[in-house]
């Protein structure tokens, strides 16, 4: 009986202590499945640096609408080189009683929020300069953007987004004009504009606006917020292309959406960012 008890206890420990994984590869379901051949891109060996401005915002953040104005103005004045994302995350973005009963957050937004060194709304990152934890108040976004714009671009992106029934195909082409140490990751995220909902705004009267228009809102991604590994220790002249297919979320109005390709270095800084044009 004692031996039996001993063996039973040991067996319990053994069976519960092993995660045998026959095939550890996780199928993300984003392999290219379009019928059309993937597009070919001509080699791009130079070009200006693009800049990503991430505006961490929330519907119950009364100081956020002025920050959104700053981000949108910088993007509009950036001549196509500056890309803004409104990232709804943090406690003030939580679903509350009406009128703040819409969930504008997503997994990618929460991931990016978790990376911030200072978690407060409004706060932002500009090309994630200083690493993914660096967070900047809106007052310095412009200066940071100007500093980022004059940095040399080591990676040059081209791309295309193709609507195909329930799917959207994404093609991203990259060429390196200088070596980049460490792992480069590629994220493709979905942004939506023209969304209407409630927003607290201390600068308006009344402070609660029920028809506030949200633009460039982060809705999701093809690749996860951190993106997928793309290349390690890239050398000048390296060229690569990734082709993905995603099942489009019907909650997203495709005519109001655009996709951003974001390539990041191993320290989290944005190497390159590009708004993918929709195929005609």
């Amino acid at each position: 009986m004692r031996l039996l008890t001993t063996i039973s206890l040991a067996a319990t420990v053994c069976f519960s202590g092993c995660d045998v994984i026959d095939n550890p590869v996780i199928d993300l379901g984003i392999g290219y499945r379009g019928e059309a051949l993937v597009p070919e891109f001509s080699l791009l060996t130079g070009g200006p640096r693009h800049v990503l401005i991430e505006d961490f915002t929330a519907h119950e953040c009364g100081n956020c609408p002025p920050a959104a104005v700053v981000a949108e103005a910088l993007a509009e004045g950036g001549g196509g080189l500056v890309h803004a994302i409104a990232v709804h995350a943090g406690p003030l973005a939580a679903v509350q009683d009406a009128p703040f009963d819409t969930d504008w957050t997503c997994e990618e937004a929460e991931l990016w929020w978790s990376q911030l060194g200072i978690q407060v709304n409004p706060i932002g990152r500009v090309n994630r300069r200083g690493g993914s934890g660096a967070s900047l108040p809106p007052t310095v976004w412009e200066a940071e953007m100007e500093a980022a714009l004059i940095e040399p671009a080591n990676l040059h992106l081209q791309g295309l987004a193709v609507e195909d029934g329930d799917d959207v195909h994404v093609h991203v082409h990259g060429s390196f004009s200088a070596a980049v140490e460490g792992e480069v990751r590629l994220a493709v995220v979905v942004l939506e504009s023209g969304l209407v909902g409630a927003q607290l705004n201390y600068a308006s009267d009344p402070e609660v606006l029920t028809d506030y228009e949200f633009n460039h809102m982060l809705r999701g991604s093809v690749s996860g917020g951190d993106g997928l590994p793309w290349i390690a220790d890239a050398s000048a002249g390296d060229v690569l292309q990734s082709d993905y297919s995603m099942v489009w979320n019907p909650d997203w109005s495709i005519e109001n959406c655009h996709l951003l390709a974001i390539a990041t270095a191993s320290d989290g800084e944005v190497l390159a960012v590009l708004e993918l044009p929709w195929a005609e």
Binding site: G17, C18, V25, I26, L28, P229, W230
Partner: peptide, 28 residues
């Protein structure tokens, strides 16, 4: 003998693959 380690984890990336991490690793 049987020895098992638990360490929290989710996925890791190797090249372009995303892999499931075993949280409970057993050895005997």
């Amino acid at each position: 003998s049987f020895v098992s380690r638990f360490q929290a984890g989710s996925t890791l990336s190797v090249d372009t693959l995303v892999l499931e991490v075993p949280q409970n690793v057993g050895a005997w």
